[in-house]
Amino acid sequence: MSETRTLPRASGLARFKGANNEGVLALVLVVLIIGMTIISPSFFSVGTFFAILRSSIVPLVFALAVLIVIISGGIDVSFAAIAIFAAYTAVKLTGSGNFDPGLIAIVLFACLIGALLGLVNGAVIARFRLSTLIVTLGTQGIFRGLLVAYIGSRYIADLPGSMSAVSTSNLISLEGGGANAYLHVLVVPVVLLCVLIALMLRRTMFGRGIYALGGDMEAARRAGFSVVRIQIALYVLAGVLAALAGVFHVILGRNANPQDLVGTELDIIAAVVLGGASIFGGRGSVLGTVLGVLLVQLINNSLILVGVPTAWQRTAVGVLLVIGVGIQAISAKRESKRVLVNDEVKE
């Protein structure tokens, strides 16, 4: 697909729209919130807001991992398997709650596992130039198989003390009036991660390298980027992020279940793509991704409030994906047509 850089347009509307349609997405979010408030006034409350934030914690960290892979022109479906592998193994090694090395040690250990598994992905993909979808499909099967067959298949209900302490701590708790609102403390590291990844993508050579890789791998190579090194590093980073998401999931759910998470990959990818990241690489932003994840969570939440059975969620996300990506595809087509016409004029 020919990615065409559009010239910066000066109009305020275009600036509002944002490089990856972030403005449009924000507008959709606002319209949805207003619509929901009109339908059911109880929707517009701090409690709902905090609940949506809480449900976005794990998807958002996953989405960051997926984002950097998608910007680099790849696609990763193994992140959920990496997440539960890392988190479950970390919990299991602490003797299922008997021995507690402290939260930081557990998190670091999980990240180490995530990095190793990410390294497997990155090494195979970068070394052999294989289709990222197919490699990560394969590693997904391998990681999950290894976890359940050799590490453990049992549900662990008692977490180490340091982890379960986090499970119940809230950053803000508003009580009274029958509607209690809690903002979970894990929101803090998630916001921090978003800021860090955004800075990395925009300000560091590594971040720019990821965009360059996704834009055109050969051009990136000729521009002097070490394609192999960047690709390996970004999958390691995606592995670490996935491991963090896994730990957060375990903390929020207050149990470690090896059967969890795998199967939710597609929702995350849908959210990232809705957030304006191009599946062909080279485009995407943390802001768009955050909005995409919030949109999916908001819609899931709204469906319940409106009285639509939760079973429709999957269909709703699918329809949303078709609409979001369809609009992107049609506008891309229009753009490429315009370019073709220009070419003919030149010749």
């Binding site: 597609l266 849908a270 969620q313 999957r314 699918g318």
Partner: peptide, 18 residues
């Protein structure tokens, strides 16, 4: 429409499955 096959069939899969 011109949607990438991965995403298009992913969406169809989600819709049908739902």
């Amino acid at each position: 429409i011109g949607i990438t096959p991965i995403l298009a069939t992913l969406a169809t899969m989600q819709i049908l499955n739902g």
